[in-house]
Computed example of a mutant assay.
Amino acid sequence: MKRALVAMSGGVDSSVSAYLMKKNGYDCVGCTMRLYENNMIGEDMLSTCCSLKDTEDARSVCNKLGIPYHIFHYENLFQQEVIENFVSCYELGLTPNPCIECNRHFKFNHLYDKMRENDCEYIVTGHYGRIEFNEETKRYELKKAVDLTKDQSYVLYTMTQDQLAHTIFPLGGYKKSEVREIANENEFKNAKKHESQDICFVPDGDYVGFMERYRNKKYPEGDFVDLDGNFLGKHKGYVHYTIGQRKGLGIAMGYPAYVVDIDAKENKVVLGKNEDLFTRTLEADHINLISVPDLYEERHIKAKIRYGMVEQAATVKQISEDKIVVTFDEPQRAITKGQAVVLYDGDIVVGGGVITSTVRE
């Protein structure tokens, strides 16, 4: 009997994943990764991801399924590899995606060590995505989920061939409504549990407040400037702003003003008009290619530059071992440094990388 380590958050998706794996004949071990102490983020132990309630819910499901349950502690590593990266990126004027970093370092790296320690062959998570082996190319492929409204392939693009070979996403072929129905049928106590839409360690959405507590400092005020560098007014600290932001600027321009660039070194925030946000070309590094070994030959694909958008037609070319250039057929709004660009061929994830720069036309 094949053995699987099931990552369980206490939510309905991971619970149903564990149920489906056991139903399909796998010897399952449930586990929760404890990533931070709640006092680290100014929250009590009964709220947020990694709370006592979540671990109790995960343990309850495991008990109901008759499978063992473990809690693995990664608080120090999570602080070093995800939280520190998150804060440092904002301090550099970037907009990070901590969910991607968590997947890269924890669910599909550190948890693999636990998979082997527990004599398991597979990691199982409640992500909405699909993994298939392509007999023609002899490569594992990451594909979009059947339920496109829940598809999480964007945040999974960092997975390697070895990781894909030892990972199962049981929910890839299900719709969310079907998953909740399975949970109800099995009387899981978390069947109606709401999903968190926030960054797990910033549950109130106030990332600057979190950063100030984490660094024990206040970020200083600076200058708003226009595209020519002319002074427009004072801002409350560049970390408060992201590319494309309009609300909360607190400055009258005579026309709708948007954040079009952030100069972290000079503590300046560049404002412009909506049309100033549109660019066609970006560069990305920290690339990971899944369906192909390289992209040195220019290729027409589709790409998305943020989680919630529909991918757009573009051309991609690899220009070095760890860098790609993506040029969209049509200008895209608010391409943001620090976010991921993920490449698609139909429902197949070609690969992706972290946006480092854009070319203003």
Rank of each mutant, 00 (worst) to 15 (best):
A7T: 05
A7V: 11
S9G: 00
S9H: 08
G11N: 05
V12E: 09
D13Y: 11
A18W: 00
L20P: 01
K22F: 00
G30V: 01
G30Y: 00
C31N: 05
Y36F: 15
N39D: 13
E43A: 07
D44H: 07
D44G: 07
L46Q: 13
S51L: 03
K53V: 15
D54F: 09
T55F: 02
E56N: 03
E56P: 12
R59N: 12
S60T: 10
V61Q: 12
C62P: 14
K64A: 05
P68L: 01
Y69N: 06
N76C: 05
Q80S: 11
N85C: 03
V87K: 12
C89L: 08
C89Q: 14
Y90N: 13
G93W: 04
L94M: 09
C99P: 02
C99G: 00
R104G: 03
K107T: 14
F108R: 10
H110Y: 15
L111C: 15
E117A: 05
D119L: 07
C120Q: 09
E121K: 05
V124W: 11
T125W: 06
G129R: 00
G129T: 04
E135P: 06
E136F: 00
Y140K: 01
E141N: 11
K143R: 07
A145Q: 02
A145H: 03
D147S: 11
D147Y: 04
D151Y: 06
T158Q: 10
M159F: 01
M159S: 03
L164T: 13
H166T: 14
F169W: 09
P170K: 02
G172D: 02
G173T: 10
K176W: 01
V179A: 09
I182F: 02
I182Y: 05
F188N: 05
A191R: 06
A191F: 08
H194Y: 05
F201M: 09
D206S: 01
M211T: 13
Y214N: 03
R215I: 02
N216A: 14
Y219L: 12
E221G: 10
D223C: 03
D226G: 05
L227M: 12
G229W: 14
K234N: 06
K234G: 04
H235V: 06
Y238H: 15
Y241W: 11
Q245K: 13
R246Q: 10
G248C: 13
L249D: 02
G250W: 12
I251K: 11
M253Y: 09
Y255D: 11
P256I: 03
Y258I: 07
K265E: 12
E266G: 09
E266H: 06
N267F: 00
V269S: 09
G272F: 10
D276I: 07
L277D: 04
T279D: 12
E283H: 13
A284E: 15
H286Y: 14
L289V: 12
S291I: 14
P293M: 00
D294M: 11
D294T: 15
R299N: 04
I301S: 08
K302C: 13
K304H: 01
I305E: 01
Y307L: 12
V310C: 09
V310F: 10
V310E: 15
E311R: 11
A313N: 04
V316A: 02
E321K: 15
I324W: 00
I324R: 13
T327A: 14
F328R: 00
E330M: 15
R333L: 07
G338I: 14
Y344V: 02
G346I: 06
D347T: 10
I348N: 06
V349Q: 07
V350E: 00
V350S: 02
V350G: 01
V350Y: 01
V354S: 15
V354T: 14
T358W: 03
V359Y: 06
